[in-house]
Design a protein around this nucleic acid. Sequence first.
DNA 1: ATATAACTAAGAAAAAATTCGTAGGAAATT
DNA 2: AATTTCCTACGAATTTTTTCTTAGTTATAT
Lengths: 134, 134
Amino acid sequence: MKQQKRQLDGQPEPTKSELEILQVLWQKGPSTVRTVNDTLNEEMRDVNYTSTLKLMQIMLDKGLLLRAIEGKNHIYRPAEQQEIMQTRVIKGLATLAFGGSPASLVMRVLGNGDTSPEELEEIKRMIEQLEKQK
Amino acid sequence: MKQQKRQLDGQPEPTKSELEILQVLWQKGPSTVRTVNDTLNEEMRDVNYTSTLKLMQIMLDKGLLLRAIEGKNHIYRPAEQQEIMQTRVIKGLATLAFGGSPASLVMRVLGNGDTSPEELEEIKRMIEQLEKQK
DNA sequence: ATATAACTAAGAAAAAATTCGTAGGAAATT
DNA sequence: AATTTCCTACGAATTTTTTCTTAGTTATAT
């Protein structure tokens, strides 16, 4: 009777390991545990297959993932769009470390210097777009 | 022989609760545990005094905080500048949820719509500054 | 001087997150 | 049909993070 806690109160907040898995799924689209696990091991760090499996089952339980059953395999996919989830975790971090101000978070990233000139241009264009819509 | 782990390998990554405490210290400057705890209780959530104390001691241990002893009281302050630490945690999140691209993180925040026109202007000015420096 | 209040220290408990081991079933291979 | 391989399920152990309890010290006030 505690299993569904996250589903009920507010939106589910993925943990760090959960974010890693979500990122793989966003990249590759719906995938089996095997695929996710292989990707994690290639691109990030050593994880045991059953650890990934267990975590994905927990995420299913929390409502972070959905799955379809195809024969013997299970195919998982994120329950939320990447955009929505990214926005959610950013807001969480802004609250925690930036006095709740996403804008100051942006300033910090930009001030940090590893944004390329092309990216800066792109961001500027986006701002101009936003200002037009106003 | 495990206590100093974080100090040795890489930079210390604050946990969520630790970030809350850092945020108070960044806001108010060097403070006693009492002050930090009161602030947490007023502005964020209920925490027991000794919980805050314990956590700050752990943070001292990890090298996240420094302290000066004044008579009976201990005055804590962040070991790192706010800018540095914020940059660090942002990069962590970018790695975890944005494919390592801080710029796409910025786009996500801006696209999200709760940045005020004034803030947008400010960000745009900042970008122009950055482009000049180039 | 005694009591009260405010502080630190530190171990332990509790909660949350992560990893692992084992069991069992289905499919493929020999 | 037996063996090997690959999968899921799931409890349990581990690790990390957070909270709390108790003890002891110092200052302050009565």
